[in-house]
Design a binder for these strands. Structure first.
Length: 359
DNA sequence: AATGCGGGGTC
DNA sequence: GACCCAGCATT
């Protein structure tokens, strides 16, 4: 491959065809950092509205550092992978306290911040500071796979050396930020996972897979196992005009989000019985069954759930939390003030104000 | 090196 | 339905 020719074709194409994305209007490392955090495993069109709103509310490191985790989670609500924003928030506080509010310009110092891995460190420093470091993300791996007919699976975590070597061969150190963005943009717009548009590709004549007519055979992927499905019950516990919500522990799945108490249905158990049992185990409260409300389906990365929602009435007992770390009795109108998982959003906005209205 | 971690778009 | 996505932390 003629490297300089490849680089020029790629970056010229980028200049002429790049999308007008919000994070391309700035060189502020904070704004680029936020965008890269949101864009992890998440598509551009999903991110845009979250990005705009997040930066309106947290326009700089100091405002983010000064805010509560809960308020930050609330802005991330619905975006998923909540550890990203918990880490971003922790990192903002570290930058505020240890670096006088200035994002460290040293690669190693920045890389050490929570949530900043190889990709984000490379992306932010190359785009904001022109550090000469190539990025490797899902798009870049797919492009490299086709350019060089790499047989290394792109979804095999960790094994990056082949891609690292390949990208270093074609990396344009004279304009690192533009080169990196160009590679990712090519992957997003032309060298797509399905039906790549080789006819419009600026570097198709450098691409082994295209030359060999094998574009559809790259990238190679490993097969993913099927995900299990769990049957879940959830109880919305009414007490007058209030309902009980509980706070998940701050790490792990949906960490730091509020939810309605519930859990898995045991084998041979009715969903009503499971609901009463789970409510008691998780909250210590005795409740009576009101009515079935709705069934919700939801998919996570490693499993799926079928969730039956019941409306219940508080009877007796004092709160004794099991896995949750906090609780609140709130009115239905206040639900929007707290961050909830997507599965809860599929029913919570349809809930009645009081239980007696619907019995 | 392997695993856990969301949600939405697309085909 | 299955696949894919501007990855990181933990073990």
């Amino acid at each position: 491959m003629k490297i300089p020719e490849f680089q020029k074709s790629l970056t010229d194409w980028f200049d002429a065809n790049k999308r007008d994305l919000p994070w391309r209007k700035t060189r502020d490392p904070y704004r680029i950092w936020v965008s890269e955090s949101m864009l992890q495993q998440t598509q551009v069109n999903t991110v845009i509205p979250f990005y705009e709103r997040f930066l309106e509310i947290f326009p700089d490191i100091s405002s983010l550092a000064a805010s509560s985790v809960e308020s930050v989670l609330k802005q991330w609500e619905g975006l998923g992978y909540y550890g990203r924003v918990r880490n971003l928030h922790r990192a903002a506080r570290i930058v505020f306290e240890q670096y006088q509010g200035k994002i460290p310009r040293e690669y190693e110092a920045f890389r050490k911040l929570p949530g900043v891995g190889e990709y984000i460190a490379a992306a932010v420093t190359s785009i904001a500071y022109q550090f000469t470091v190539p990025v490797i993300d899902g798009n870049v791996k797919r492009v490299l796979s086709r350019l060089f007919e790499l047989t290394q699976p792109v979804n095999d975590a960790g094994k990056k050396k082949i891609f690292q070597d390949a990208v270093e061969e074609i990396f344009d150190a004279s304009q690192p930020g533009k080169f990196n963005e160009s590679m990712m943009e090519l992957g997003a717009l032309i060298c797509r996972p399905n039906q790549p548009d080789c006819g419009q590709c600026p570097v198709s004549k450098h691409c082994l897979a295209c030359i060999d007519g094998k574009v559809n055979r790259f990238p190679k992927k490993t097969q993913k196992p099927a995900v299990p499905e769990y049957h879940i019950v959830v109880g919305v516990i009414y007490r007058e005009d209030k309902v009980l919500i509980t706070l998940r522990k701050s790490d792990g799945l949906l960490g730091g989000l509020w939810e309605f108490p519930g859990g898995k249905v045991n084998k041979g158990e009715t969903t009503e019985a499971a609901c009463l049992r789970e409510v008691f185990e998780e909250t210590g409260l005795t409740v009576e069954m009101g009515s079935f409300f709705k069934t919700v389906k939801h998919a996570y990365t490693h499993f799926k759930i079928l969730m039956d929602v019941f409306l219940c009435r508080f009877v007796s007992g004092d709160i004794r939390l099991n896995s949750a770390v906090d609780f609140k009795w709130i009115r239905i109108a206040e639900l929007g003030d707290f961050p909830f998982p997507g599965s809860n959003h599929k029913f919570m906005h349809e809930l009645p104000m009081r239980l007696d209205n619907c019995l």
